[in-house]
C-alpha cells in the first residue's frame, strides 16, 4: 500500500513530461530533427535493437565500465585504507590527491587521448580517474571514523596491526566503502559515456554522437533513455548486492 502510493507519486512528473512532449510534437511546429515524436523514438529503438547495434554498443561500454570500475575500486580501497591507518601516509598523499581531485573528469580526456589514443585503455583510465576519488575518500573516512574504543578492544585482546585492520577498522568502514563503490559505479558510467562522446569509435556514447552528426535526434534520445535506465538498474543492483554484505546496517535503521 505504502510503496504503491510512493510509486504513484513518483510517476506524476514523468507522466507530465511525456504529455508535454506529446503535445509539443503533435500540435507544435518543432522540426523532427530538434524534437522527434514519441512514435519516431519508439521506431528508432526497435530499429536499433533489431539489428543488434544498440546491444553491441552497450556491451562495449559496459565492459569498459567493469574494467575501469574494478581498477578504481581496488586502487581506491587500498589507498583509502593505507591513508586511514597511517597518518604519515595520509600527510604524504592527501594534499596531492585533494588538489588532483579538483580537476573535472572531462578535463583529463585531452591529455589521456594524447597519451593513449582513443582505444580501450584511454577509456579505462578516464573511468579510473573519475571513480577512484569517491571510493578513496569514503574508504578513508570510514576507516578514520572508527571509534577509538573499538581499537582499544582490539588492543585488549592483543590483535596485531593487520588483524586490527581486518577485524575492526575494515568492518567498521565497510558500509561507507560500499557507499563509495556505489557512487564510483555511477561516476564510471557517466565517465564512459563522456569519454566516448569526445573520442571513440565504438560504444553507446559514440553512437549518440554519430546520430547527432546525422541529425538523427530520435536515435540521440533513444541513447539518452537507455543510458539513464542502465544507470538506474546498476545502482539498484549494486544496492541490493551490498545490503547482503552489511546485514547489521539495516537493523540499526529499523530499530530507530
Amino acid at each position: 500500500m505504502k510503496t504503491g502510493k510512493y510509486i504513484l507519486v513518483a510517476l506524476i512528473v514523468p507522466v507530465i513530461i511525456l504529455v508535454l512532449w506529446y503535445i509539443a510534437t503533435t500540435f507544435g511546429s518543432l522540426p523532427a530533427s530538434i524534437l522527434p515524436g514519441q512514435q519516431m523514438v519508439g521506431n528508432a529503438f526497435i530499429e536499433m535493437t533489431s539489428n543488434g547495434q544498440l546491444q553491441g554498443d552497450l556491451m562495449i561500454s559496459l565492459v569498459r565500465v567493469v574494467k575501469g570500475f574494478l581498477a578504481s575500486a581496488i586502487t581506491g580501497v587500498f589507498l583509502g585504507s593505507v591513508m586511514g591507518m597511517s597518518s604519515k601516509m595520509q600527510n604524504l598523499l592527501l594534499p596531492t590527491i585533494t588538489v588532483i581531485r579538483q580537476i573535472p573528469m572531462v578535463a583529463w580526456i585531452p591529455l589521456i587521448i594524447l597519451w593513449s589514443g582513443i582505444g580501450e585503455s584511454s577509456k579505462v583510465i578516464i573511468i579510473m580517474i573519475a571513480a577512484v576519488f569517491p571510493i578513496l575518500v569514503n574508504t578513508l573516512s570510514g576507516i578514520e571514523s572508527t571509534p577509538d574504543g573499538y581499537a582499544e578492544v582490539a588492543r585488549l585482546y592483543k590483535l596485531g596491526k593487520w588483524k586490527t585492520f581486518t577485524k575492526v577498522y575494515l568492518p567498521h568502514a565497510l558500509p561507507q566503502i560500499l557507499v563509495g563503490l556505489k557512487l564510483g559505479l555511477g561516476v564510471s558510467w557517466m565517465a564512459v559515456v563522456a569519454s566516448e562522446l569526445i573520442a571513440a569509435s565504438t560504444g553507446i556514447g559514440y553512437r549518440m554522437n554519430e546520430a547527432r552528426s546525422l541529425m538523427k535526434s530520435d536515435k540521440v534520445i533513444v541513447c539518452m533513455i537507455v543510458i539513464g535506465l542502465i544507470g538506474i538498474i546498476m545502482d539498484k543492483l549494486i544496492s541490493l548486492l551490498f545490503n547482503q554484505f552489511t546485514p547489521w546496517v539495516n537493523l540499526q535503521k529499523n530499530s530507530k
Partner: peptide
C-alpha cells in the same frame, strides 16, 4: 575488561 559503553562490535 568491561567498558561503560559496552563496545560490542556492531558488525558481529
Amino acid at each position: 575488561m568491561v567498558f561503560q559503553d559496552h563496545r560490542l562490535l556492531p558488525w558481529l
